[in-house]
């Protein structure tokens, strides 16, 4: 019984992780937003090649999964700041909150950008259509691809859709990286 009380007291004495969550969430939210912006404008400004996938998308090869590393940064900051060990469950929790924070920051910046450049989505859609038009696909298939891609791009703009997809995805992936961060960066006990 005393041991349980001691553990609870130890838990209560642990410093708050919200600063680490906030810092990592904002940094990675901005990175994810900036990368999506760069990709969008690169697509808008590229000449239609007729290829289904333009060379600018190759930039994306380096940004795969980048938003998943927020949990690792948060746990690194938390462990570094207070020089403490982090339990795996706590690392997972820090990762989950960081993932939520990344999503919120990304959506907020996205919405702000809609005011700065309201035509961006339409220009991106026009660029995609021009690219499909220049392709060698049969007309029926070309039209189907244009319709579905345009529908998908329009849908991605709403806050609801962004929350629906990004919240669980960034949440889950950052749970994993939060745990990895807790294991790698937390002070080893014993």
């Amino acid at each position: 019984m005393d041991e349980v009380t001691e553990q609870q007291a130890e838990q209560n004495n642990q410093p708050s992780y919200w600063t680490s969550v906030g810092i990592a969430g904002v940094i990675f939210g901005i990175i994810v937003f900036a990368l999506s912006l760069v990709t969008s404008y690169a697509m808008i400004n590229s000449e239609p090649s007729g290829s289904l996938f333009s060379p600018v998308q190759l930039l994306g090869i380096f940004v795969c999964l980048v938003g998943a590393f927020g949990g690792m940064l948060a746990t690194w900051h938390y462990a570094n700041e207070y020089n403490i060990s982090i339990k795996l469950g706590k690392g997972a929790l820090i990762g989950l909150f960081t993932g939520i924070c990344i999503t919120v920051v990304y959506i907020v910046f996205n919405q702000i950008w809609q005011f700065i450049d309201p035509d961006m989505t339409q220009k991106a859609i026009d660029s995609v259509i021009a690219n499909f038009e220049a392709s060698d696909l049969p007309d029926a298939q070309k039209q189907q691809m244009i319709d579905s891609t345009v529908q998908s791009m329009r849908g991605q703009n709403s806050i609801g859709t962004q929350l629906l997809y990004n919240l669980p995805m960034y949440g889950i992936l950052n749970v994993f990286t939060g745990m990895i961060g807790a294991k790698v960066f937390g002070k080893q006990e014993g």
Binding site: V32, S36, Q57, C64, G67, Q144, S148, Y165
Partner: peptide, 16 residues
Amino acid sequence: RWPVQWQHQAFNSLCH
């Protein structure tokens, strides 16, 4: 069509 499938939408901002 695959661009509008929910699986593709879910990974849209995580993978090229």
